[in-house]
Each structure stands twice: as C-alpha cells, then as structure tokens.
C-alpha cells in the first residue's frame, strides 16, 4: 500500500536521506527508531511534502501512485497524515475554523473519489460540529479548545492531543506520527496512545517515529525498523525494540558497521 524505495533527499545541498526503503501494508503498525539526526523527522516531512526538502532519487508509492510530485494538500487529501513533532502556532486562526476547512477538503476529496462519476455526498456544517464534539470527548478535550487559536498557548500535551484530534477527524489511511510521545507526561501519553489505538484499523497503515521504547509499551507495533545515517539499517519484529533498549544505539551502530 505504502512503498518507499531508494529515497534520497537533501536540504540546502546536504543529503539527509541516503536510500530509504520501507514498505507498509494496510492494517500494519510500524515503528521507526533511531538516534537523533538519523533522518527520521526528515523522512516524515518528505512524505508529507515539505517544500524545504529536495528529493533527488527514489519513489514513494501510495496505492500504486507516486506522490512525490504532489503538493502537500493533495497528499493529505489522498489520506496521508503527519502528526507533527512540533506543531506550528498560527495566530488568529481558530481551531474550529481550521479543522472545518481541513475536514471539508479531505472528506470532500474522498467523497468525490468514492463517488466516481456519481454525486459526492458532502459534509454539512452541522455534521462537522457533531463529529468534532464526539472526537474531542474521546480525547478528553474541553469544548473551549475549538475557540482557541491554532496551537497558540497550548501546552506540549495539548498540542499533541490536537494533532491526534486532527487525525481522528481526517481518518487517514496512512498515518505518520513523528515523536508524538516527546514532551508528554505519563497521563498525556496514555490519552494520546489510547487515541491512536482507537483509530488504528485494518484499513490504515501507521508509522510511529520515536526515539524511545516508551511509546511502544502503549502502542504495539507489528514491525520495528532502525534508522541510522539516512537509511533503514535493520528491520524486525517488536523484539528489535527491546534489543535496542538493552544495547543502546552505539552498540547497534558498531554492529551495523561491522556487517556492512
């Protein structure tokens, strides 16, 4: 369903991704681990279409379609979602207004795809408000949240919850969570993890990017990949995360270097 092949990407002429290969089928949860600077966040941003990165080689196929030439909004409309490590603050834009526009665009695009030549059923403002309230309850978010400006004055936990709320509303088929666990206390981590677990389904692929094993105690991955120096250097089952926890990145790095 989601297939990254030999992906190379640079920022300001510095190559960060040096040939990433990764395949995710629907219904699968993959964890991507790796030390700081290994290219995990770059990979997430390149998948979402961040304009600062230049892809120099390779492909990303999503349901057989190459997404690399698409604008970020087109990718999102196809069902790709990135929960940001550092969600940006946009002054003066209310959560409700932003969410309504995002949901309308993504859902209408999907409705049109599904309708084919037929009439697409569009979401009404009333349906949207009901949906938003439901999802906010699931994530233990106060209703006043909707009237606040986008991420302005949000605590670390609130920002991450807001990201998961967006994921819940947009119902992606490929979700990338970039260090969603960073900066969360144990309670917030539980709420966020429960949210992700409730959302993950047989139709969705999930890529969890994390530095630590901690998140994987709450969200169980089917596969674990280790990224170093811009490449996926090792892949395995959930046991790989425990192995990594026991050994540490440095030892693993040495092993990888020895077998290379």
């Amino acid at each position: 369903m989601f297939e990254i092949t030999n992906l190379h990407a640079s920022i300001e002429d510095t190559e960060i991704l040096k040939g990433v290969d990764l395949t995710i089928h629907k219904g699968e949860i993959h964890a991507l681990m790796g030390p700081n600077g290994s290219g995990k966040s770059t990979l997430a941003n390149v998948i979402a279409g961040h304009p600062a990165y230049e892809v120099t080689e390779g492909t990303i196929l999503f349901n057989g379609e190459d997404i690399l030439e698409m604008e970020p909004d087109e990718r999102a409309q196809l069902g790709i979602f990135l929960a940001f490590q550092y969600p940006t603050v946009i002054p003066g834009v209310s959560m409700a207004n932003f969410l309504r526009m995002a949901v309308t665009n993504v859902r209408n695009a999907r409705a049109e795809r599904e309708a084919g030549d037929g009439e697409a059923k569009k979401m009404t403002p009333r349906e949207f408000r009901k949906l938003m309230r439901e999802k906010m309850q699931v994530l233990h978010m106060d209703e006043s949240f909707a009237t606040r400006y986008l991420n302005e004055g949000f605590s670390g936990g609130e920002k991450k919850r807001a990201e998961i709320l967006q994921m819940a509303l947009l119902e992606p088929t490929m979700a990338i969570l970039d260090e969603t666990d960073s900066g969360l206390d144990i309670d917030a981590l539980r709420v966020v993890s429960e949210g992700v677990n409730a959302l993950a389904n047989d139709e969705m692929g999930v890529l969890l990017i994390t530095h630590y094993q901690r998140l994987l105690n709450h969200i169980k991955p089917h596969f674990v990949h280790i990224m170093m120096d811009g490449r996926v250097v090792q892949s395995g089952g959930p046991e790989l995360a425990h192995e990594l926890e026991a050994k540490g990145y440095e030892k693993l790095r040495a092993e990888v270097a020895a077998t290379a």
Binding site: G49, D73, F84, F98, N105, V106
Partner: peptide, 16 residues
C-alpha cells in the same frame, strides 16, 4: 506547510 499538510489548498491556506 502545516495547513496544506492538512489538505487545505495553498490559496485557502493563504487566506486563512
């Protein structure tokens, strides 16, 4: 980028 990554086309994102 943040707004576009949520499916909002560039022109609408600018407006927002």
């Amino acid at each position: 980028f943040y707004l576009m990554a949520r499916g909002i086309p560039k022109s609408e994102a600018q407006k927002l």
